[in-house]
Amino acid sequence: MIHGIRSHEIRVQEQLPTMVPDTSPILSFCIATFNRREMASALVRDILASDQPVEVCIHVDGSTDGTLEELLSIEDSRLTVTSGTNSGSAGSRRVAISKAKGKFIAIYDDDDQIIGQNIPSIIDQLIACTDKSLCGIVVHYVEADGRLHGSPFVRRRTNFLQMRFDDHVKGDKREIVRSEILKPVVEKYYKGARRVPTSLLWYKVALDYDVMCVDQAIGVKCYLPGGLTSAIDSVKKGSPWPMLRHKMTIVAGFLFRRHRSLRAAGRSLLSSVFYCAFAFRQVLTNGK
């Protein structure tokens, strides 16, 4: 009692915000597919057989062999299937990547195979990748007989340009990159294009970010007859603008000291002249 007035203790109960657990996937496998129903569906099923926090985003690029129907028959909330008229590998990959909700993205080919037992350790590596100067990790492919595809990594931390042109790491590797880094690059360089070398994405990322090399394999690399690899020269000539950007990014990487290969920079500069000629010829042809 103070001066005849009873004092009351007023307790204000602070309303704490309800913490909603983050249930978004760690890794999104983004796939473009065209008329490879059996291989595409097998790859999707093998990925989804994992109990890890992964998802699959696959775009059916105008297939006529029942791929879409086969994929839609797979009942799994971690699967996103989109489809449209044939727009080429770049256009269909762009759609698949735009649907990804994972913290990291791996671009997969529909004729590759997954090594499911290695997914948990790959996820652990991604969770441990907290350094914001790193774009993510890069891992291996193996051949069908289990041998390493290409050559081993030379150093633990590098960037994609240094890895290729200073360390001379050969063969296909699987780059797994943070979504917030990769998506803007894909949107900028894949929009409106039918075919873009995926290495253009990695080299653009390499101008600003390093990557951790992990000596594990996530997939088996396959090259089927009739694929892009079997006709790579004609594909490059038919996509001169992306190839020009690709070559100029290698030159920029040298100027920004992201790699030290004068030879790679010089050859890329000469190749730029070659692709410039094809690019302007394409402009003149389309203008007729």
Rank of each mutant, 00 (worst) to 15 (best):
C135W: 00
H140C: 06
S121L: 10
N159L: 02
F104D: 04
E69P: 13
G146Q: 09
I74V: 15
H168T: 12
L68Y: 14
Q125A: 08
S151P: 14
A100I: 01
A90V: 05
I122S: 11
F160W: 09
K99I: 04
I181P: 01
F165P: 14
L72R: 11
V177R: 00
G88N: 05
F104M: 08
P152L: 07
T85V: 10
D131P: 12
H149K: 09
E70R: 14
L72F: 13
V154Y: 03
S77L: 08
A144S: 13
G66C: 07
I119L: 15
A100V: 02
N159K: 02
S98D: 10
D110A: 11
S83M: 02
A106S: 15
V81R: 01
V138T: 12
K99M: 10
S179M: 01
L72N: 13
G88V: 01
L161F: 07
D65F: 07
L71R: 06
M163D: 10
Q113N: 11
G84Q: 02
G116S: 13
L148S: 11
I74D: 08
T158W: 04
D166I: 05
K173T: 09
G150L: 07
I122N: 10
G66D: 04
V154K: 05
E70S: 15
A106D: 03
A96R: 03
M163L: 15
V138E: 00
T130Y: 03
I114P: 12
S151T: 15
D109R: 02
I181H: 00
L72P: 06
A144T: 09
G66I: 04
D109V: 09
K132D: 14
I115E: 06
D65H: 08
Y141G: 12
